[in-house]
Design a protein around this nucleic acid. Structure first.
Lengths: 163, 163
DNA sequence: TAGACGTAGA
DNA sequence: TCTACGTCTA
């Protein structure tokens, strides 16, 4: 079985290879890839600053993330509707969004896990795509009229090819 | 590793022993004990009738379930508040509640999984307690003033003792 | 589309 | 207490 990594860290995870697949988000925690059950951006505090450790990006979902060869365009977190009748809000540069911005500034590696819709459309599976660097980010208006963040991540060369 | 059971069935699950522990609710699905990620009552249709396959009962939680030696008193599902401002409602004899009532009438076995709060209070773990029969159920007023169902389940004799 | 005994962290 | 790219069935 896979080795269990309980320590949240930046960069490569021992025993995990590019292309490894997982059936549930909780498995990502068991192996040490991504410790947040429901959040797309995980991060850890180094000194006084939060750095992103990993993101879970999903194809063909509401978030409009894009996978283009070795470039991922990822939508920030926050601003979503919880209760019917409430409006969505502008995303803020806090928590996971701030951690990704910090990772860009310090050129800190970010693990990318790709959530793939299953063919039977029953849930997702998760594939480890390797290490990326945040190249830039910007804010734009979403379909709701509220602003959201986009992060452009570029895959670090020299890793096994994507499957 | 554990054998993977993908077929939802009533009664004993191959390879699973009383006392087996699991860290996440999704693991219960992987081994075939309980297929619903968030619902406490799982069930399967036999002919025209839904029968309960399993319940996940939790100590020291809002639900006021009781574990007393070989008797479990379990609270039905439904009636909960989703949005702030909405009132809770009376529980209805549908879905999981109906399945448990059917299991009682037909003396059909129900697996009981016990959700235990961890000592560090970070989430729960799940222990398989074995097979039970529904002895009776009734409706009562909850703290909210709305009615809820209680199911009394009795452990079938001859199984390994509870840990 | 909504509803259900999920989980961890801020 | 609340949010957050959960996950399945009816």
């Amino acid at each position: 079985g896979k080795r269990v990594n309980t320590y949240k860290k930046i960069g490569q995870v021992p025993g995990i290879q590019v292309g490894d697949e997982f059936q549930y988000k909780t498995e990502l925690r068991l192996v040490g890839l991504h410790f947040k059950t429901m959040c797309g951006i995980d991060y850890v505090k180094m000194g006084d600053v939060n750095f992103a450790t990993s993101i879970v990006a999903s194809e063909g979902y509401d978030y409009d993330d894009k996978f283009d060869a070795d470039v991922v365009t990822y939508t920030g977190e926050g601003g979503n509707v919880i209760c019917k009748g409430k409006k969505s809000e502008d995303q803020k540069m806090v928590k996971g969004n701030l951690a990704l911005a910090n990772s860009m500034r310090h050129k800190s590696e970010v693990r990318v896990i790709r959530g793939q819709e299953r063919l039977d459309k029953k849930g997702k599976r998760y594939v480890y795509d390797g290490l990326y660097l945040v190249d830039k980010y910007w804010s734009e208006k979403g379909d709701s009229g509220k602003s959201l963040y986009r992060f452009k991540l570029c895959r670090i060369p020299g890793q096994p090819p994507l499957t």
